[in-house]
Design a protein around this nucleic acid. Structure first.
Length: 435
RNA sequence: GUGCCUGUAGCUCAACGGCAGAGCGCCUGACUGUGGCUCAGGAGGUUGUGGGUUCGAAACCCAUCAGGCACCCCA
């Protein structure tokens, strides 16, 4: 294939059947977000490079950078969180805190593409800015659960942890900050490489033998959330900050329960690390039980990021849904609308003489709010027109011949079953809406 | 960014140094108020792209582009 007729690696075109699913995903998320009182925000895809620098940790090399025509150093946004921080700082005089906002759009990451990984990715970002209350954290988790249910997901679990839990684990194990980063990366792989794998990696990283075993015992804790937290509190009792983290998580899950999130849809996962460096408190991500697909979303509390821009601390908690992954998984699971086209019916044109009456009927039905596609070739055989409608996946076809016209009627044909009925013209719109 | 695997008709794949094929799909007709089923015909490929080896390359080699898997990391 000529290299000219080719989209950019890691970036996707979405043909209509895919866009029907994607728009359903976005519309569903928006409706849940707004039910929780979140307001929409949109920012440019391009930011000054310095806005993004130093915010996301080791992955800065993944940021797309270039110079614009004026020689300004700019970058494509890597996520929606840093632009949010910029907006909060820039408009803090006009905003009322706590501020709940959502933002849906593209971000760009120069990663190697793979399953569930793209270089252009849509995210739906939801944040509560200006509150350190655990109710805020709980709201985000309740919202995420409602969102996934609204999209039709059943088997999923939100893994919940806390940055200071990890910090406590590192401190109790006698590690300094430099060593801790590697430890976090290793223990985050627990589900993937198992206890033995993590042990090997920690030992290879130079962590002392007894520290490794202490870490493994802590991150392997599983079971009911309350039991795990109690166990963690006991084992981390020498670490003030870790205990505060346990109490914080306890408060969050009690609020989450109060908001009706079922016990089996969240769990305390001390091995959860998460890469982004700006998290300071709770961290979480949600995984589906099948098919295999990393995490559908991730989030947490970041109380210091916005302060880098605003000049004063503004505690914030939020999450980002990975719309690419939601899309791919829903497609594989067959979730979402099954419609393959947007129109509910094709208005056929029986013959050239009937064209004006047919077009008038289409206009009338469109005015009534129905999505009607009109056949374009008045000379084409009726059979061809029906075949076209069927192949496009339209559920109905409308036939208006001389006989129907004379009686003020219309034939409504169900293309899936083959059944057809002659209805009075005045009730066709209602009938289509009901069917 | 590193390593490995894969790119053949619209789709799924075969041919694996010797004439590029099948199934499905698509087009035409049998069926001149009605699609799907059946039958009969038909169209469609510089084998991702560019070079090289060879009498001869879809096949072997190099590069490149794209996809997948494992690292890395993440939505």
């Amino acid at each position: 294939m000529s290299s000219r007729v080719q989209n950019i690696r890691g970036m996707r075109d979405h043909l209509p059947s895919a866009m029907i699913l994607r728009q359903h995903i976005v519309a569903t998320l928006v409706s849940v977000f707004e039910r929780y009182g979140f307001e929409p925000l949109q920012t440019p895809v391009i930011e000054y490079a310095e806005t993004l620098d130093g915010k996301i940790g080791d992955d800065e090399k993944l940021i797309y950078r270039f110079e614009d025509h004026g020689g300004r150093k700019v970058a494509l946004r890597y996520d929606q969180t840093v632009p949010l921080a910029r907006v909060v700082a820039q408009y803090q005089g006009q905003l009322l805190f706590p501020w709940r906002r959502y933002a849906i759009g593209q971000s760009y990451r120069g990663e190697r593409p793979g399953r569930g990984r793209y270089r252009e990715l849509w995210q739906a970002d939801v944040d509560i800015v200006g509150s350190s209350s655990p109710v805020a954290d709980a709201e985000i988790i309740a919202l995420l659960t409602d969102s996934l249910v609204a999209l039709g997901f059943t088997g999923f679990t939100t893994l919940l942890s806390h940055r200071q839990l990890l910090g406590g684990i590192a401190r109790v194990s006698g590690l300094d900050d430099a060593a801790a980063g590697n430890v976090y990366r290793a223990i985050d792989k627990l589900d993937k490489i198992g206890v033995d794998g993590v042990r090997a990696e920690l030992l290879a990283g130079g962590v002392a033998h007894d520290a490794v075993e202490r870490i493994l015992a802590l991150i392997s804790l599983r079971g009911a959330a309350d039991d795990v937290l109690a166990e963690l509190a006991q084992r981390l009792s020498g670490d003030e900050r870790a205990l505060a983290a346990v109490n914080n998580l306890q408060a969050i899950i009690s609020h989450v329960r109060a908001m009706g999130v079922p016990e089996q849809q969240f769990t305390i996962a001390p091995s959860l690390a998460r890469g982004l460096s700006y998290y300071t408190g709770s961290v979480f991500e949600t995984v589906v039980h099948n098919p295999p697909m990393g995490s559908l979303l991730g989030g947490g509390r970041y109380d210091e990021l916005i302060g880098l821009f605003a000049g004063r601390p503004i505690p914030t908690v939020g999450l980002a849904f990975g719309i690419e992954r939601l899309h791919d998984v829903m497609e594989e699971l067959g979730l979402g609308p099954q419609a393959r086209t947007v129109a509910v019916a094709l208005m056929t044109i029986f013959s050239p003489e009937m064209a004006p009456a047919s077009l008038a009927l289409a206009h009338e039905l469109r005015a009534a709010g129905l999505a009607i596609e009109v056949a374009l070739d008045p000379g084409e055989k009726l059979g061809k027109q029906l075949q076209y409608a069927d192949r496009r996946g339209m559920p109905y076809a409308l036939v208006l011949g001389p006989d129907e016209l004379a009686h003020g009627e219309v034939v409504v044909k169900d293309l899936r079953t083959g059944d057809q009925r002659r209805l009075a013209r005045s009730v066709v719109a209602d009938a289509l809406r009901r069917m």
